[in-house]
């Protein structure tokens, strides 16, 4: 006898997406949310990667409401969580050019693609942009960015494999400065946040930038939408090495809805600034909390 066989059937129920399930749950009864409804809501929120802590909090917030108000309140709460003011607007250029945007994250989240997409976005707004391929570790990491640069005619400064990422940052900053570039976008190597030695590389990059009198580097951390609560750990630890100013959530075109951003933003108070929604270079948007939450519920 195997209890596990039943799981598959039960899962098919949960496979229906977040919005339809939540609507179904809240459509029943009228005066007060029942215990059963709360349990269903717990399941829905947990399955969306919100994590047990935030789920408990949200449920305690709405448990005394009637279903209608409860739904509205939940939606409001989730939106409020994501509404964090950015310490600095990415798009406002600094007085001394270039403004530096550094892209960091664990392996395979989509840093290189995001770097190219931001370059495209900024170029579309009539900025002069330069890319720096500072991923000197992964095989063909540089070629990947180079291909994007060739295709869309971005300026690119690259290093050598096995070389020093900080040296690439140094060279590219000088180049960007002398060519009067508005934005310098640095693509760094993916690294797991648990690898201390790799994380320490950020200190060196920071030092190089400080020596250039560039103290306002805008650091963006790339999170994969499929990531679970581990995403929180990633943001926490990266933030210990470089101040993370904003998040980029990638691969939102899949079935994962990026629910991990709720616990992350809730706890870290770091805003999501961009989202990636496809493989094309224009599949990249500024993040809008209201639109994002509405998208979850509709």
């Amino acid at each position: 006898m195997n209890f596990w066989n039943q799981i598959n059937q039960k899962l098919s129920k949960t496979r229906n997406n977040f919005s339809s399930r939540i609507k179904e749950t809240f459509s029943r009864s009228t005066d007060k949310i029942s215990q059963e409804q709360l349990e269903e809501l717990e399941e829905i929120l947990l399955l969306a990667d919100l994590g047990p802590d935030l789920t408990d909090y949200l449920i305690s917030e709405i448990k005394n409401e009637n279903p209608q108000d409860g739904l509205t309140k939940l939606q409001q709460q989730l939106t409020d969580i994501l509404k964090v003011d950015a310490a600095e607007d990415v798009l406002i250029p600094t007085s001394d050019k270039p403004k530096v945007i550094l892209i960091a994250g664990v392996n395979g989240t989509g840093k290189t693609t995001s770097a190219a997409k931001i370059a495209y976005l900024l170029t579309e707004q009539d900025n002069k942009v330069m890319l720096a391929a500072a991923d000197t570790f992964r095989a063909a990491g540089i070629e990947q960015l180079e291909n994007w640069a060739k295709k869309y005619d971005f300026d690119l400064i690259k290093g050598q494999y096995g070389g020093d990422a900080a040296a690439v940052v140094h060279d590219s900053y000088d180049a960007a400065h002398s060519r009067n570039v508005d934005y310098l976008i640095i693509d760094t190597a993916g690294r797991l946040h648990t690898k201390k030695n790799l994380m320490n590389e950020f200190n060196k990059i920071q030092k190089v930038l400080n020596n250039k009198n560039c103290h306002r580097c805008h650091n963006l951390l790339v999170l994969d939408a499929t990531v679970g609560l581990n995403g929180l750990q990633q943001v926490q630890i990266f933030n210990q090495y470089i101040p993370v100013h904003g998040l980029i959530v990638t691969k939102l075109d899949g079935t994962a809805k990026g629910g991990c951003v709720f616990p992350v933003v809730h706890q870290m108070r770091i805003p999501v600034q961009f989202i990636g929604v496809g493989e094309g270079i224009e599949d990249f948007q500024f993040f809008d909390p209201e639109k994002f939450v509405r998208g979850l519920f509709n």
Partner: peptide, 15 residues
């Protein structure tokens, strides 16, 4: 599969 995948791991593996 990336071991850091959250709840969606199951959906993608099933598909």
């Amino acid at each position: 599969v990336d071991a850091m995948t959250g709840q969606d791991a199951v959906n993608l593996a099933e598909s």
